[in-house]
Amino acid sequence: MYQTLKNLTPAQQIGAMFVIVFGLLLLAGLALFLRSMREFADPQRAQQHRDEIDNLTQLLKTSWLLVFVFWVAWLAGDVSRLVLFGLGSFFALREFLTLSPTRRGDHRSLVLAFFVVLPFQYWLVGTAHFNLFTVFIPVYVFLAIPVVSALANDPTHFLERNAKLQWGIMVCIYGMSHVPALLLLKFPRYDQRNAFLLLFLVLVVQTCMVTQHLVARRLMQLNKPAAAPLVSQSFIWRAWWSGMVAGSLLGALLAGITPFVPGQAFALSFIACGAGSLGHLVMKALKRDRGIPIWRGEGRGVTGAGGMLDRIDALCFAAPVFFHSARWYFGL
């Protein structure tokens, strides 16, 4: 089995990988469906069961969406791949800024962020200008945005408004653009197979988040204290460690599809999981500050469609850290 897979061409290997992943998702969906059929005599227990199923369904949907996007990205070729991730950034930033208190004076800065910074950053990825790509937003845009805002002649909450805009750009554009950038890293003896690296990152981070979520739910039922209850009821150190270990172990197991040996894969997964899960916590703090449970703003319905940011924030934080540690360690 392993030999057969090994002898396939890279393209066939990637195809086989997607078949396997879609198969696993289907199995998970089937299992969930069967579990949802269970009946309970006690209505309270039944409600609890339903909530749990709803939660898991949500997670499964996210996974489907992510894998599907990556599949399309792989099929579509370089340019459309960038466009796809660019659109992801666009919708995530739209969501982020909807709930940030920008004023009329920020209009030009917003135009700059959406229609200049975003396309340019992805253009830099596409043309593999790695040096400029890593400093363009933290150095140049960092100055350009407040200059444009200052010229709008409105000092009210200036720092707050700009900080939020900068933050949105960092997370939604800078972080996100590191995901397709992974496709362009040139590891020795790893030709054409960078799609695996992308899948590796997504699987590892998503596994970490799912495990953390499931363990946290169990621990919450046992009334274990959260680490920062005002920010997140479900962030419990023990659950976090479980997620980290699960993600990293999966990473080590998947070393075969990466250019890394198992030890390196373990370490890099550990770093990516740490960045992703802690980044998710940070985003939760941000949401609490705005007084909303999820970005979609359910119940208040400020933002309408979306909830995109909830799904990709861990990846947005994990991708740059993963990218740069891999690049630094392998001297690429």
Partner: peptide, 18 residues
């Protein structure tokens, strides 16, 4: 917020009609 008075380029912000 999408297009304040005097601006020509709209920016993306989620809106709703209730």
């Amino acid at each position: 917020r999408v297009m304040p008075k005097g601006e020509v380029v709209p920016v993306p912000v989620l809106c709703s009609v209730t």
